[in-house]
Design a protein around this nucleic acid. Sequence first.
DNA 1: CCACAAATATGAGTAACATTCATATCAGCG
DNA 2: CGCTGATATGAATGTTACTCATATTTGTGG
Lengths: 212, 212
Amino acid sequence: MSTSAVTSGPLRRVPVQGRSVARVQRMLDACAELVDEVGYEGLTTTLLAERAEVAIGSVYQFFPDKRAIVQALTLRNMEAYLERLAARWADASFDHWWDGVDAAIDEYIAMHRTVPGFRTLHFGDVVDVHLLDEERDNNAVIAERLAHVLVGQFGVTDEPRLRFALEIAVEAADALIKLAFRRDVDGDAAVLHESKTLIREYLHRHVDTPPS
Amino acid sequence: MSTSAVTSGPLRRVPVQGRSVARVQRMLDACAELVDEVGYEGLTTTLLAERAEVAIGSVYQFFPDKRAIVQALTLRNMEAYLERLAARWADASFDHWWDGVDAAIDEYIAMHRTVPGFRTLHFGDVVDVHLLDEERDNNAVIAERLAHVLVGQFGVTDEPRLRFALEIAVEAADALIKLAFRRDVDGDAAVLHESKTLIREYLHRHVDTPPS
DNA sequence: CCACAAATATGAGTAACATTCATATCAGCG
DNA sequence: CGCTGATATGAATGTTACTCATATTTGTGG
């Protein structure tokens, strides 16, 4: 989604008092609800202000434009994902590297089902794929974290090859999971299963674990 | 593979005289240029009218709204793709079923490079994924055509399993090729190569050819 | 408890944009 | 040539994103 950088930074002004912090959260919550209800195209600023029970001017106190609101929401979702994933990885220590990848996929699926706005915005393909990092796509950042964990926890040989394979895998998995949720509100089970199979078999050919 | 059937879709009124047919084409051409230049979000109706050297009213003679213009362009691109693909399949008779799939991928890549607007709109993920068929995604339609050819020309066993695998494969390939063109204007060669490998290896496990 | 400044909240007002419609022009046909 | 439907036009209208002058609240030092 090549959106020529016309406007949209992150926040116009950072909320410092408690009330305004809560207010910005309410705006993001309203944004999430509405985006699921009417889609990104159907979202209007007045609708958002009404749902958040906020004057339209308050929105523009903190956000430079409409796009930035959706970006901020996407960013919040991505950070929540990374946190949850880190928690999962910290909790259970996996027997095989695949279990780590499997957890990443499962968490992504879970958030599609439970987090408002997630099924519509995913990881930013609607608004901007460069939220976490200037240089790389959001998916590339996810891939990098995965690579880091695979190397650290499972002693996978770290080579450029591994990171490349993971970027490919993440991109494919992302697309297939989106397909599953386009087909079925809860995620088409057959598609989800097949996605995992495809990714697992692909990675098996590119991830080398040293003999333990 | 005739193109006449679909024309009634997004059009408010079908152009009957020669001049208006050419005019609608000019609008679509202008739309393609602009979408590549300023992105879908940056596209405005006045910009489009100026570029097409047409009064704004003329646009609305045929298109109900802005979205319909982009839809019509995407549809034109998809039909061009299907026609080119049919031509390829008709010309060379392939030794192996993979050559057919390979041709489909290559043509998709070629159009990304040569057809204005294609690298931005792809097969409609920006506007609508249900242009060719009410029920199914655009990619599902492509998958069906592929299945039809594989069964007809190569005697691949037709089973629901095959079509399902192709839908998965098309979706994944689509996402990976988009990634390649996000990374590099001409399509990142390494990503494109890896995409083909992934798809080929995946399909090898799901496409059965009877002994000839 | 009282200034006083900084932060925040407000919504009528402005600008940009999508879309309409009354009217003018053109193509084809008898 | 005159008539009819198709096409072209752009000022006018409605909708939406966004601004700004002003009011209110919060925190802080005296």
